[in-house]
Amino acid sequence: MASIARSLRPVASRFVPRSSRSAPSWRLSSFQARCFSASSAVQAKKYTKDHEWIELSEDKKTGYIGISEYAAHALGDVVYVELPTTPMEVAAGDSIGAVESVKSASDINSPISCKIIAVNDSLEEKPGMINKGPEDESSGGGWFAKVEVTEAGIKDLEGLMDGAEYKAFTEEE
C-alpha cells in the first residue's frame, strides 16, 4: 500500500491549489485523497450440488438466484426458460422454474428458503442470455429470481458450498 501512496505523490500536487504549494503537497493537511475500499457490496456466491447459486446483498436480506456456469455449459444452448411466479414463498430445494436446452431440460431449485420478489423477464424473450452470463446478476445477466431471505434461509446458507468447494465438486464430476 505504501508503494501506491509514493507513486501518487507527484500527481497529487496537481490537485492542490497553487497558493498552498509552499510545502510538499503530500504533507498538506488540507489535501484529501479519496479512500477506496476492497469490500464488496455483495457476499460471496454459494452453490448447491444441483448447480444453482445464490448471492446475497451485504445486509443478507435480499439476493439473486441462478444456475452456475458449469450447469449452463453442460446444458448447451438454452432455448426455453420457465420462470417462477411472484410473489412466491419457497423452501430450500423447491422447484422455482425450469430451463430447456437443445440437449436436455432441468428444473431450477431454490438454494435456500426465501420469498421470490422479482424475476428476470428478459430470459423469456432471450433464453440464450443464460449461456452468455449465467452468474451475472446485472440487468443483462442470466439470473432467474430476486429474493427476500427468510430466517430459515440464513440457516440454509450453512449447507451450501463456497466458490472453492464448488470448483472442487465440479472437478470430481
Rank of each mutant, 00 (worst) to 15 (best):
A2V: 10
I4D: 03
S7C: 03
S7Q: 04
R9Q: 13
R14E: 08
S20I: 07
A23H: 13
P24T: 07
L28D: 12
S29W: 08
Q32K: 10
A33K: 06
C35V: 13
S39P: 02
A41N: 12
A41P: 08
Q43V: 04
Q43L: 14
Q43T: 03
K46S: 13
Y47S: 12
Y47D: 11
D50A: 15
H51A: 09
W53V: 01
L56P: 07
D59N: 12
D59A: 03
K60G: 00
T62Y: 11
Y64H: 15
Y64T: 05
Y64Q: 05
I65S: 02
G66R: 04
I67N: 01
Y70K: 05
A71R: 01
A72Y: 00
A72K: 00
A74E: 15
A74T: 13
D77K: 14
V78L: 04
Y80H: 07
L83P: 13
T86R: 06
M88S: 15
E89C: 04
D94I: 14
S95R: 04
G97N: 02
A98C: 08
E100P: 10
V102N: 03
K103Q: 13
S104F: 13
I116F: 05
I116D: 02
I117T: 15
V119C: 06
V119S: 04
N120Y: 06
N120I: 08
E125Y: 00
K126V: 07
P127D: 09
G128V: 08
M129R: 10
M129V: 09
G133C: 11
G140E: 15
A145W: 05
V147I: 14
K155F: 04
L160A: 05
L160G: 09
D162P: 03
D162V: 01
E165L: 02
K167L: 13
A168E: 13
